[in-house]
Design a protein around this nucleic acid. Structure first.
Lengths: 214, 214
DNA sequence: GTCTATACCGCGATAGAC
DNA sequence: GTCTATCGCGGTATAGAC
C-alpha cells in the first residue's frame, strides 16, 4: 500500500468514495434508511461527516447511489451457477445444483440487500424496480432459458416454472435467514430442493422413478 | 365539545387506545419504524402526543403491541379459503381456488404488513418469528393437511409441496405488489396458478417412490 | 479535499394545568 | 386522562480553517 508524499488531495478522493460507500453499505444494510445516521456512516468509513457531504449531495443521494451500485455490480449474477459445465448434465442434477447454489449464495449479504429493498420499497419504489430489473429478471431469464432448452422436460410454460423455482427458493431463504424462523417451519433445505426438482422433472408420460442423490 | 360531567376517566380510554393503534398502524405500515414519529401517530389518531404516552410506555412498546395485535387478530387466517365447501371438489379446483384466494387477500394491507415485518426483522427479530408462527405456519399446516388428505395426489412429502405453493404465491405477491414490478417479469397471475396446480396434480402413471431422507 | 465546530431543526419523552 | 408547552438530545447539513 503506497502513499504519495505530495499533495494529500491527490487521487485520494476515489478511495474515500469507496470507503464511504463501504461504510454506507454496512450501516444501511444493517439498520435501514431512516435509522442510519450520517455520523455512523462517516465513522464506519473512517472519515469526517463533512467529507461524506463533499462526495454525496445528501443522505438520499448516497443511499440511491449505493443501492444502484450494489444492484448493478455486487449482486448482479449472485445467483448464477458457478459451473457452466454442470448445465450439460442431466436436468435433475443441473437443476439441483442451481437450486443449491441459489440458496448458498443467498446466505451472504444478498439477503440483507433483499431485506432493505423490500423494507424501503415504499419510500424508494424506483430502487425496488431496479432490483427486479437487474437481479431477479436475469435469474429468471437464465432459468427459463435452461428449462426451455431441455426439450425432454416437456414444460408447457418455462416462464411459469422458472417463477415457481425462484419463488420457492427466495421464500425459503427469507423465512429462514431474514425472518430467522428455521425452527418453526418443518421443511429443511435438501428436502425442499428434492421435491421441487422432482415435481419439475418427473412428467406423466415418462413414468420415471426418482433417485435421490446420495 | 361535549364532555361527560361525571368522571372524565370513563371508558373513553379504550376508545382512545383503539384510535391510537389505528393511527399507529397507518403510520408504521406506511413509513416503517424509524421514519414514523409519535407526533404523526398522535395526529393520525386525533389525540395529543401525551395521550399516546399515557396508553403506551414508549414508541417501541407501541410498535410491538401493534404488530403482535395485527399478527394475532387482523391477519390471522387472512389466507384461509372462505368457502370450505370448495375443498370437497376435485383437487385441481380446490387448489386453484385456494391459490387465487391467497393472491386476492394479499392485495389488502397484508402485504404492507409483510413488508414491515421483513424490513424491521433486523431490529425486531421476535416479531418476525411471531409472524411466521401465527400467520405463515397456520397457512402451511392447512395446505399440508389438505394435500395429505388427498391420497390420489400421491405426494411423497406434503410439507415440501405446501412450501412450494406458498413460496411461489408469496414471492409473486411481493414482486408484483410490494416491489411494483408487474411489468418486468412476464408471468401473469392466472398463468402461474395454472402451471403451479398442474405440476402438483398431474402425476406420473407409475407411483412415485421418491424420498430424500427417511 | 478534509477536518472541527456549529447552526438549525425535529424527535422522543415529560411537566403541569385542568 | 387529556391537553399545551417544553426540555434535551441527536439528526442533517453547512461554515470556515488548513
Amino acid at each position: 500500500m503506497e502513499k504519495r508524499r505530495a499533495n494529500s488531495s491527490d487521487r485520494q478522493s476515489s478511495e474515500k468514495t469507496e470507503a464511504i460507500l463501504a461504510g454506507a453499505m454496512q450501516e444501511f444494510l444493517a439498520g435501514g434508511y431512516a435509522a442510519t445516521t450520517m455520523d455512523r456512516i462517516a465513522s464506519a468509513a473512517s472519515v469526517s461527516k463533512a467529507t461524506v457531504y463533499s462526495h454525496f449531495q445528501d443522505k438520499e443521494t448516497l443511499f440511491i447511489a449505493l443501492i444502484e451500485r450494489l444492484a448493478q455490480e455486487k449482486f448482479r449474477g449472485a445467483f448464477n451457477s458457478p459451473d457452466p459445465q454442470m448445465l450439460e448434465k442431466e436436468p435433475e442434477i443441473a437443476l439441483r445444483c442451481l437450486a443449491a447454489n441459489m440458496l448458498d449464495t443467498s446466505q451472504t449479504h444478498l439477503l440483507d440487500f433483499i431485506r432493505i429493498i423490500i423494507g424501503e420499497s415504499g419510500r424508494f419504489p424506483a430502487l425496488a424496480r431496479a432490483f427486479v430489473q437487474h437481479i431477479e429478471k436475469p435469474v429468471h431469464d437464465e432459468v427459463r432459458q435452461y428449462l426451455a432448452s431441455r426439450a425432454e422436460l416437456k414444460l408447457a410454460d418455462p416462464d411459469s416454472v422458472a417463477q415457481i423455482i425462484i419463488g420457492t427458493l427466495v421464500h425459503f431463504s427469507i423465512v429462514h435467514h431474514v425472518l430467522q424462523s428455521s425452527d418453526i417451519l418443518p421443511v429443511e433445505r435438501d428436502r425442499l430442493i428434492d421435491n421441487l426438482i422432482t415435481l419439475i422433472t418427473i412428467q406423466p408420460e415418462k413414468s420415471r422413478t426418482c433417485q435421490s442423490q446420495g
